[in-house]
Amino acid sequence: MKKLLLAAAALLALSGAANAQTVRMGTEAAYAPWNFLDDSGKPAGYDVDVGNELCKRANLECTWVANEWDTIISNLVAGNYDAIVAAMSITDERKQTIDFSDAYYPPDPSRYVTNAGANFDFAALKGVKLGVQGGTIQAAYAEANLKDGNTIQSYATYDQAMADLAAGNLDVVLADGPYLDPIVSASNGAVVFAGPEVSIGEGYGIGLRKGDADLKDKLNVALEAAKADGTIDTLIAKWFPGKGPFYKK
């Protein structure tokens, strides 16, 4: 009897795997520790761990697609993948084009960084060359609030912006705090935080095509369970030491 039960359970598991919905996850793969390519060339990072965890819980067969940031939303809308898991902040502007899951990381302030020794008046920032990544909440904030009297330079990736900061071609970079934390720590004082924290967005969510309610519901149910049992907090602690816990009550 025991062998029959084990065989039935194995058959059920195989049947469930065979019937699993295939979901293609799009990510930038150039924004560590959120998302990047590991030594074997595969997407890795917090976004990827969260996506894989939710897919497992929702019985989804997930694959990953790396896509440049500036076309990541347009390629979702075009059907080249089914979801965006790429440290994308939930904003009213983006909601006009795509839907979002619930947040899988809470709002986190953006930060300014400069080269050590620089001294700028962030209360009335003027005459600086400011770097941002195009299509980000930081780029939108800079265009709306800092364009007057400053030069806003947009980059395809934040790595390019940081390289120009190190080369002296920029004065300031504005980016997500969690992205900048390890860069500042590893710079041995060459790059420093400056100015105030800037709160933008509603947290980080999974981007979905308008009307894809079934996938949105499946991901949100899985996400709620992963928050409640502490899994999301564990992944946050893995990739962002010292952050959280945010979700487990």
Rank of each mutant, 00 (worst) to 15 (best):
A123S: 15
G201W: 01
A228S: 14
A58T: 05
I72S: 06
G177P: 03
E93P: 00
D181F: 00
L180K: 05
W239F: 14
N115E: 11
F240T: 02
P106L: 12
P196T: 06
F120I: 05
C55Q: 05
K56N: 12
V48W: 04
S74I: 08
D164F: 03
A78G: 12
K2W: 11
D181V: 04
V48F: 04
E61F: 01
E197G: 15
G201H: 09
Y155G: 06
A78L: 14
R57W: 09
N80M: 13
N145L: 05
L146A: 08
V184C: 04
D229F: 08
N59V: 01
S187A: 13
L12Q: 09
G26Q: 03
N150Y: 13
I183S: 02
V48M: 08
G230T: 07
V172E: 11
V50L: 07
Y31T: 08
K227P: 06
L223P: 04
L125Y: 07
K227N: 11
N188I: 00
A116Y: 10
G207K: 07
V198F: 06
V221D: 14
G203A: 06
S199W: 10
K56F: 02
L5N: 03
Y81H: 10
P196L: 06
A30E: 14
A87Y: 11
T63R: 04
I236M: 07
N80V: 01
L5R: 07
F36D: 12
D214S: 14
E197H: 00
G117A: 06
G79Y: 12
S110L: 14
G79T: 02
A87V: 02
D176W: 01
M1T: 08
D214W: 00
D39C: 01
A83E: 08
V85F: 15
G117V: 00
S199E: 12
G41T: 12
L174D: 07
E143Y: 12
